[in-house]
Amino acid sequence: MSFWDRLFGHQEAENRSKDVAKQRLQVVLVHDRTRIRPGLLDTIRDEIVSGISKHVEVDKGHVELSLASEGGQSRLVADIPLKVAGRPRQRPTAG
């Protein structure tokens, strides 16, 4: 960040509060629009896990279920890691 940016109060890209605002809005609006209470996601996740667990072993502690909105469409996104015997679990590194 240049001296002038500092002087004029320009924020560094990762510090912009508007990005936080936008991201929070996107999440809250998907819940509003789909009328899915945040707590309901936990229930759905537990049911998915118990359903899948009947067939394959799921790494229960790392299941992620979230709501996403893109171009006016809302979707449930599930990430369900499986337990593979004999192999250490490897999570993809966030990038």
Binding site: Q11, R16, A21, K22
Partner: peptide, 18 residues
């Protein structure tokens, strides 16, 4: 505030509201 990145700009609002 928009220029500083501290207020949602027009495009941000349109992105979320469509």
């Amino acid at each position: 505030m928009v220029q500083r990145g501290d207020m949602l700009d027009t495009q941000d609002v349109l992105d979320v509201l469509a």
